[in-house]
Amino acid sequence: MTKKDILTPIGITLGFLMIIFAIGSNGNPSNISIFLDVPSIFIVIGGLVASLLITFKFEQIKLTRGVVKESFIKTENRLPELVELFTRLSERARREGILALENELEDVDDPFIKKGIMLAVDGIEPEVITDILNAEITAMEERHYKGRSIIEKAGEYAPAWGMIGTLVGLVLMLNQLSDPATLGPAMAIALITTLYGTVLANLVFLPMASKLETKTEEEVFLKQIIIEGIIGVQSGQNPRILEEKLSAFVSYSDREKYKEAMQKEEEAIRSGMVEDRVNEA
């Protein structure tokens, strides 16, 4: 289950507001117009796109939109649900046998869990299951890295293109040394491209890449816990022991929140059953 991560847009917006505040801090709003230069924008954005086209294949570049979108999505904490799921699977496997778990998979949406359980049902050795699922994790990390590397490279290229724009501006400025009155404004415009490139890199691209890397690490951690659960179910581990083992990965506050949610859900179900009986009577 996912929902929008409001921290990313809030952080970007706050960063730009701080820059605008710094520009207008002397009480002169006209200063903001000084920092808007169309040629500088074209140099930084155009040069950045050109570098990315040279660096990456077109198939990778097409993924950029999805990668950027991922940094604005928050993944819900699934650990308590996983503990409950594998405890239930373990209880059924001990009661009815490992083959009975095939029916349980109809309610499972995660393909990684489905694959692991099916391997367990097919009687594959635990070591082989672990190797297969770890290979899946490695492939996932590689896919995420390829997508994230576009954002990381954009963070590297943006300041460089800002500097290139500044150098171009300086050359043009030095060509007008005969008119000292133009040196100050020309120098200001020359430096604006460096500002654009630095802001894009340190406020947008690099923080976004770091967030994506953190999300990948969290997903890898989650999948490692899933492997522990699958092996525990296959080996016929006591459900209570397996529950305690997996619960060690869940924070105490998350456990309490999940228990409260489950209790409310059970109460809602019971109240619904009571209402149905009253209606039938």
Rank of each mutant, 00 (worst) to 15 (best):
I45C: 00
D122C: 02
I54H: 06
K57N: 05
V44K: 04
Q60R: 08
L119T: 00
D110L: 07
D110S: 04
M118W: 07
V128C: 01
P126M: 15
I129W: 07
I41M: 12
S51I: 05
I54W: 09
S40P: 06
I137S: 11
L52A: 08
R92M: 01
F72P: 00
F112G: 14
S90H: 05
I61Y: 13
T75C: 00
A135L: 14
S90F: 04
R88Y: 04
E84A: 12
E102L: 11
I73H: 07
F42Y: 12
E136H: 11
F72Q: 04
F42S: 06
A100Y: 13
I129S: 09
G47L: 01
I73Y: 11
I43E: 01
A50P: 00
K62T: 09
L63T: 10
I54A: 09
E104Q: 15
I45N: 00
V67N: 11
S90D: 09
Q60S: 11
R95F: 01
G97V: 10
A100E: 12
L48S: 10
T138I: 11
G97M: 11
F42A: 12
L105Q: 03
A139Q: 11
G123W: 09
L52G: 00
K115R: 13
I124K: 15
V121G: 04
T64F: 13
K74G: 05
E76V: 12
D109K: 10
E125I: 09
G123F: 05
F72S: 03
E91M: 11
P126T: 15
T64A: 14
L53H: 03
E125F: 14
G46M: 00
V68C: 14
D110W: 03
I98A: 15
A50I: 02
V67K: 13
K69T: 06
K62S: 09
L52C: 05
I43D: 00
S90R: 07
